[in-house]
Amino acid sequence: MADEPLILGIETSCDETGVGIVRGHTLLADALASSVEEHARFGGVVPEVASRAHLEAIVPTMDRALTEAGVTLADIDAIAVTSGPGLAGALLVGVAAAKGYALAAEKPVYGVNHLAAHVAVDTLEHGPLPEPAIALLVSGGHSSLLLVDDLARGVTPLGATIDDAAGEAFDKVARLLGLPFPGGPPIDREARAGDAAAIAFPRGLTAAKDLAAHRYDFSFSGLKTAVARWVEARQRAGEPVPVADVAASFQEAVCDVLTSKALAACRAQGIETLVIGGGVAANSRLRAMAEQRAEKYGIRVRVPRPKLCTDNGAMVAALGSHLVAAGVAPSRLDLPADSALPLTTVSV
């Protein structure tokens, strides 16, 4: 489809500098530079370290994306950029870069919502998204359940974490077990050799009394503390910690809560499509459990491949492409970076 618009996407909301290029729903390039290793010794993302890395990485990452796609900036029809939510200083580098590219190449710029982009990226793998759909977005920075009625103009938040993000719980439990940062991949790996039913960890906000006020909200802080207590009790008793069993049981508790709430939302709203995105969507147990449970209700689960689940430029380009196709007006050049951009705002 050579006549579909060619859209470039820039992502810098956390520790990944991403530049993606799409034509319609076709992914042409997805270049990424990560500062994750610089953050490892701090046990979490350090905002200033991330911002400095974005400034250094943006020009070379853009070069790689353009080369990969075999296009020049003059060929691009529009530039989309994550304008929020995320780390303020990190977002600002991407937004200023997008404006620099847009100004010099005389192209329109779209400031877009990072979370909506996590939903839109699935269109690159599975084609247009049926609307309405339910989206479950889980990462180190966010855990949200949304009703996607119109991805170009607004999504409705149904629930979110009231304390830690799901990915944050993975990081903290990994650290407790002596596994590396970020914690998602090593826990997933360890859990494969463990017994998910070995330890009964709590499922936050699933008791009847909590469901009244927090039907679609999440809480992972209690779970994280329960794991810490369990591990410490073992250590104090001088017993070895069964890392694989702890990882599997913890992962099972997280996936159980996420999938049951997401599917409950689908059923309550009579919606047949569930999209899962964000770094935690790369977790193999979450994908398997969601599909298994959804099948019973005739709900289709769409999860993009792991590389598209984590933060990247392709997701921003995918949302930009959707906005251009829907005839949404571009942003102004005074477009701000907004670390607390609400979900109801898809483009600024």
């Binding site: 911002s51 400034l55 020009v59 580098v93 200023a96 870069a97 620099g100 590219y101 010099a104």
Partner: peptide, 19 residues
């Protein structure tokens, strides 16, 4: 101050790259 300073530098670098 870092956050503001980077705005000018990234603007210059990206425009230079395009042009």
């Amino acid at each position: 101050p870092f956050t503001g300073l980077r705005v000018g530098l990234v603007t210059a670098a990206t425009m230079g790259q395009v042009l």
